[in-house]
Amino acid sequence: MSGSSLSGQVVVVTGAARGVGALLARKLAARGARLALVGLEPDELKNVTASLGPDAACWTADVTDREALARVAAEVVERFGRIDAVVANAGVATGGPFLDSDPDAFDRVIQVNLLGSIATARAFLPALITSHGYLLQIASLAAITPAPLMAAYCASKSGVEAFAHSLRAEVGHLGVTVGVGYLSWTDTDMVRGADQDEALREMRAKLPWPANRTYPLEPAVERIAAGIIRRSPHVYGQWWLRGMQPVRGLLPSLTGGAMGRREMRRAQPALARSAGVRRGLVGSGGAADEAARSSVHHTP
């Protein structure tokens, strides 16, 4: 993959039914890629796939289901003949105090974001080794700095970042490039869902600039698409995230120290108003994840 084109390249995108995944699929298709989309929402996936033209197909699968992903990987190779790049983008989130979180929702964030990404790599790496391809793991600002009220998401994104860095060292000699993509608060269903939590919304607004604002989706995804073309080891959806890397070692002492304690004290009134409220997965994607798992559990 070089230049500005992905002509003929086969790219798999997980979490492709909405948000980052859906727009990224469209941008990659515009650059000539053939797309294999994976997600949990069949109707939304079909709509996105239909918008990409004849060189696209979709598969409904839960990224935490290793057997399902193995079948998808085999079917993608059968359908397209090869796989040149995989974007591990599927993710969910929950917010709020750890002790108030729904335990199942908290665990599900870890399962989808971390174990789902690992399952994605396990399923598709053999094809990427064959093609000397590229795996892009979507992480987050949450991997660079921990934050209160976001324990599950920060833990999962820190985990996938470390996993991707470890994997890069393992498979580089086999011709596979592994990249990590970083996004700050970007205008997606997930972020809009998180903003419905009063305490989280107010605490986020008090973050230092430029981490305290929501960024438009299109420019961020454009940067991710460009990073895929370059097979970049690090891709930044917002320009300033690159500058966070040299100082990231200092950030836990800030967020977990006096600043964090001060903001948590300020958040107590909002937290008290929502005391006892079940804090599940946020946004439309989170609702779709819960609905899909519920339908599986209740199928006779």
Rank of each mutant, 00 (worst) to 15 (best):
R71N: 06
G172D: 05
I83T: 06
R262L: 14
L99T: 03
T188C: 12
V77W: 10
V76W: 12
H234D: 08
A139N: 05
S294K: 11
G260R: 07
A164I: 01
G81D: 13
F98D: 04
P54L: 04
S5A: 14
R66V: 00
R82Y: 10
I144V: 15
T145Y: 15
V87L: 14
T94E: 09
L136C: 11
G181V: 01
L281D: 05
V48T: 13
V72S: 12
G286K: 07
L136F: 08
E41Q: 15
D289N: 12
G249M: 03
A270K: 04
H173I: 00
P148W: 05
V87W: 15
V160Y: 13
A73D: 09
W209K: 14
P97W: 07
E75S: 05
R213W: 12
E75I: 00
R204F: 07
M203E: 02
L174C: 01
V296P: 03
A25C: 13
S253K: 08
A287P: 02
A17S: 15
K27W: 11
L271Q: 04
M190P: 02
D100E: 15
H298R: 08
A292R: 14
S51F: 07
T64S: 12
D104P: 01
A275V: 00
E161T: 06
F124G: 05
D187V: 10
N89L: 09
P210R: 08
P126N: 06
N89Y: 10
L149E: 05
N113Y: 11
L6W: 08
A36M: 09
A56P: 09
E263C: 01
G257W: 05
D187I: 10
V277P: 01
P148N: 06
G237I: 04
W59S: 02
L167K: 11
M244V: 10
A22S: 15
L251Q: 01
G159F: 10
L174I: 01
L115Q: 10
A205M: 03
V92L: 14
A147P: 01
V109C: 08
D102R: 10
L69W: 09
A164L: 09
Y236H: 13
A70T: 03
N47I: 04
G91I: 01
D65M: 02
V86A: 13
P208H: 01
A143K: 11
P252N: 06
R242Y: 14
E222H: 12
L281A: 04
P146L: 05
C154V: 11
G95Y: 10
S101Y: 06
A119Y: 09
G243N: 11
I138D: 11
G116R: 03
R293P: 01
A29F: 08
S51Y: 06
P54G: 04
S140E: 06
E75R: 09
V48A: 12
A29S: 15
G96K: 07
D43P: 02
A270T: 00
L149S: 04
E198T: 00
V63K: 08
T130S: 12
E170K: 04
A169P: 00
